[in-house]
Nucleic acid binder design. Structure first.
Length: 448
DNA sequence: AGAGATGATTCTAT
DNA sequence: ATAGAATCATCTCT
């Protein structure tokens, strides 16, 4: 601290000796013509400046006035400004300009993507909207969740904009205030306009770092909101029984190629939506939205089903038998009806409960029919499922010569599952596979 | 409470 | 873009 006066002394003395305009004033100053006298004079002035804060207010005011009126004041002021300029620059030069721009840009981009900053739009980003749409189908109170999400996002948006406005206003106010203050003080201490400008920059930087914090916490809030919302997506609700039956029936009746085409999936989604809309999705009023969601559900369901069936065929055997038998029963009933009504190709839309509306009777049943022609008796139509299964097993074991367990296995996957356990040509939609199958194929899929 | 079932998600390959 | 595979997370049943 005590170095400074001496430093100022030295600088001032050196600065002034080289100052072209100052030498003119000096002889008038005290009447002294030698350099020592000048130094003495400046030293006095500086001394007065240094001690000005130690004095009482009145005294100080008087001194201030005296100093302001002093003839050498402008020259000294300029010199002090120069000196200060140089020292301040050398101090600041090193530490300025580390750029937080990259992070700020990232935050800005994110806020823009999330729909917090930028033009107002309904539900935020595409991703968030998709998440919202997907999750809207999950819970019973899904649409409430959806609007909840949007409401919270709007809330964050509002808070962000309010705070941003506040910061901007505060920044402007503070800048103006500081500028006025510095301008005011520049009358009594060496403050150049350049320095004021620099101070304004410093203030802006400080405020922009605050702004960055605001942006950061806004981003965090959005992330938290989103993660909470995405978590809600995992909250699953099982399909109801009818919907599962619809899907299972399709699956087991297309076991050789359980890849429903887009249209088939849409139709399955529609079928499921009838039952689902009354239970799990009763709050989802938009049928288009419901179908879209169910389409995804159907896709998921088939994906899971295929993989799990393939992994453990034995486990699903019983289920396969039941659905095969059911299909057989309904198909037989159609066929029986057909022979009576002379319309054998009529699709079974009134068959077993919840059955998918397809003209196809299913792989298994077609196998049985083609293999056994007249052995499947219409008198058995309406008999209980178990007896149907037994009959079918019996028929298969007779014609195929497989043992019971193996027969069942072979029953459902003769054409479809290859040695690797994969279905043939999984990418081909089931609706277009049948005509290209081999001569021994009995797969018939005329749905859609 | 724990096991198993099941829908959803993510990653990789095609 | 879609399927398979692995995995996660939740639901349901015992």
């Amino acid at each position: 601290m005590d170095d400074q006066p001496r430093l100022m002394h030295a600088h001032a003395a050196v600065g002034m000796s080289g100052h072209p305009g100052l030498s003119q004033h000096i002889p008038d100053n005290t009447g002294a013509t030698d350099g020592d006298g000048r130094k003495q004079d400046i030293g006095d002035i500086l001394q007065q400046i240094m001690t000005i804060t130690d004095q009482s207010l009145d005294e100080a005011q008087a001194r201030k006035h005296a100093l302001n009126c002093h003839r050498m004041k402008p020259a000294l002021f300029n010199v002090l400004c120069d000196v200060k300029e140089k020292t301040v620059l050398s101090i600041r030069g090193a530490q300025e300009e580390e750029s937080p721009d990259a992070q700020l840009m990232r935050l800005d981009n994110m806020l823009l993507a999330e729909g917090v900053s930028g033009p107002e739009k309904g539900g935020g980003s595409a991703a968030a909207a998709a998440a919202a749409a997907a999750s809207a189908g999950v819970g019973a109170d899904n649409s409430t969740e959806h609007s909840d999400y949007r409401a919270k996002l709007t809330q964050i948006r509002q808070i962000y904009h309010t705070e941003l406005e506040k910061y901007e206003q505060a920044c402007n106010e503070f800048t103006t205030h500081v500028m006025n203050l510095l301008r005011e003080q520049s009358r009594t201490r060496p403050i150049s306009p350049k320095e004021i400008e620099r101070m304004v920059n410093i203030i802006h930087r400080k405020f922009s770092s605050i702004q960055m914090q605001l942006k950061q916490s806004t981003c965090e809030a959005v992330m938290i909101l989103r993660s909470r919302f995405l978590d809600a997506r995992r909250k699953r609700r099982n399909f109801n029984k009818q919907a599962t039956e619809i899907l299972n029936e399709y699956f087991y009746s297309h076991l050789s190629n359980p890849y429903p085409s887009e249209e088939a999936k849409e139709e399955l989604a529609k079928k499921c939506s009838i039952t689902m809309s009354q239970t799990s999705f009763k709050n989802l009023t938009d049928p288009k939205c419901l179908n879209d969601i169910l389409y995804i559900f159907v896709s998921n369901w088939f994906g899971n089903k295929r993989i799990r069936y393939k992994k453990n065929i034995g486990k699903f055997q019983e289920e396969a038998n039941i659905y095969a038998a059911r299909t057989a029963v309904s198909a037989a009933s159609v066929s029986a009806h057909g022979s009576q009504t002379n319309s054998p190709s009529t699709p079974n839309s009134a068959g077993s409960a919840g059955s998918f509306n397809m003209s196809n009777s299913g792989d298994l049943f077609m196998s049985v029919q083609s293999l056994n022609g007249d052995s499947y008796q219409s008198s058995q139509v309406g008999a209980n499922v178990q007896s149907q299964v037994d009959t079918l097993r019996h028929v298969i074991s007779q014609t195929g010569g497989y043992s019971d367990g193996l027969a069942a296995n072979q029953m459902y996957s003769p054409q479809g599952i290859n040695a690797n356990g994969g279905w043939q040509d999984p990418t081909t939609p089931s609706s277009v596979t049948s005509p290209t199958e081999g001569p021994g194929s009995v797969h018939s899929d005329t749905s859609n």
